[in-house]
Structure formats: structure tokens, C-alpha cells
Design a protein around this nucleic acid. Sequence first.
DNA 1: ACTTCGACCTGTTGGC
DNA 2: TGCCAACAGGTCGAAG
Length: 271
Amino acid sequence: MPELPEVETSRRGIEPFLLDQQVREVVVRFDHLRWPIPSDLNEQMQGHRVLAVDRRGKYLLIKLAHGCCIIHLGMSGNLRIIDAGLAPQKHDHVDIVLASNKALRLCDPRRFGAVLWTSHPVEAHKLLANLGPEPMSEAFTAKDLFDKSRGKTQCVKTYIMDSKQVVGVGNIYANESLFMAGIKPTLAAGKISLARYKKLHTAIVEVLGSAIEQGGTTLKDFVNSDGKPGYFKQSLAVYGRGGEPCLSCGRDLQELKIAQRATVYCKSCQR
DNA sequence: ACTTCGACCTGTTGGC
DNA sequence: TGCCAACAGGTCGAAG
């Protein structure tokens, strides 16, 4: 489900319900997500207050005084705020029950997501330590994108989806950003000029920024934490539109696979 | 060191 | 209607 805008939308949705709340109990109904959920998760969190609900890339970070619960939504995960005790549906794997009698509930049919715990500074966690800059921060620059791409033969689409370069650019927004920047997705990352990386940088920031403003993309089952859908889908220019006319020039959009992921672009607008 | 590819899962969709 | 194959928002870690 989620790319960065969806994760950020979820974070904003759940934060007011978690912040400053004491954790009453963590209920794990199914512990085999991408990795096993730590068996001492309840022991670690029970009775402690939530100090912050942060995000790093697509990882949600629920911070307590002595450690952090790391949540990743994988491909199909979603989070909702419910009344504690509401009967769980299929795939509702974890509840973090709060003293307020509300609970944060994780549902993840495909189980590509993760729920982990770390007692060390979370930034040093193996999964977070090597992440690139946040796309909406000053640390993300066209110059770095350009410099780090030199010598690389991989497609530019694969390159911008690599979380070591920049976090949060998934398949939808990679397609959209490349269209906005007028860059053909199959070009070798190492052969693209600084001027074009400046366009691409701007496009990534704009595409992700407006998606966050609009509450993420609604695809199939995405709803944010209060159950309202995102509204970005109606602004997608290429994703899911293979064979349909380019919104800019009217020619048929091309569809192909790059690294086994659906890729759509306009042959005449993207070169 | 860089790049590609398999693997992890269920649910939905489209073709026959 | 049923069956089967292909596909779906991610990304780690192994293999090449």
C-alpha cells in the first residue's frame, strides 16, 4: 500500500491519539510478519508513555523513554485507531492498546510489514542506519543525486527508488516524478546531466509534497487512520494509465517492466 | 562494489 | 461459474 505520503498521512492521523498516552497492553495475534515480532514487545512497552510518533523513510517510529517500536507497513499494511476491544478481523495482527481505551491496530494481509523493537538509538538500527535523506528536507539535493549516480549503469527509475539515495520514492511516485521531469525511466542513472537531476529533484519534491497535502494515494485498500481515503489518485498522470493518452501530448503511454515493477511513460515527452 | 533477482504473502482481476 | 495465471503500493539479502 504505502509510499511515503501514505505513511506520513498515517503518522499524522495516529499521532494525536498516541502522544503522551500510556500503553496499557500490546496484543500480538500473529507474530510472523516479514520478521518475527519480538516476543517481549508487550513487556517492553506496557505501562510506558509515548513520547513521540516520528517517521524515517517509510518506517514509523513510536518512541518511548527507553526504546522505540519500529513499524513498517510493507505492501499491504494499514493502521487504524479503534476502540479497544473491537473484534479483530482477519489480518488484524497487532493492537497497541492505550490507557485512553483506544488502540492502534495494524492490519496487513500480505504480511510484508514489520513490527520491531529497539532499546538503542533508533537511528542506529540496521534498517535505518543506511537510509538516504528525507526527500522533503534540505539534506536532499540535486547535486548529491548527480554526484552519487556517476558511473552507475542502472536505470534512473531504479536509482531514485533506492533508499540509499533518497527515501520514500516508491513505484507510483517514481513513475510520476520521471514524467514531470521529462526523463525516460530506462536511461542509465550515470549518464544524466546535473541540469536534468535538478529537474528530477524538483519533481520528486513536488510530487511527494502534493501527495502528502492530499492525504496520499487511494489504491484499493488505502485509508488513513480515521478511515477516510486519500485523494491523490485523481492527480496521477502516468501510473496505471498504460495505453491511455498522455495528458500533455495525447500520444499513447508506453508500459514496460523495470526490475519487475510496472513502469509507464510517454515516449515523446520523456527522453 | 555494483546490479539483478528471488523471496516473503494474500487478495483481486482477467482470460479461457 | 470455475480455475489458473498474472499482478499489486516494498525491500532485504543472496547470487551473479
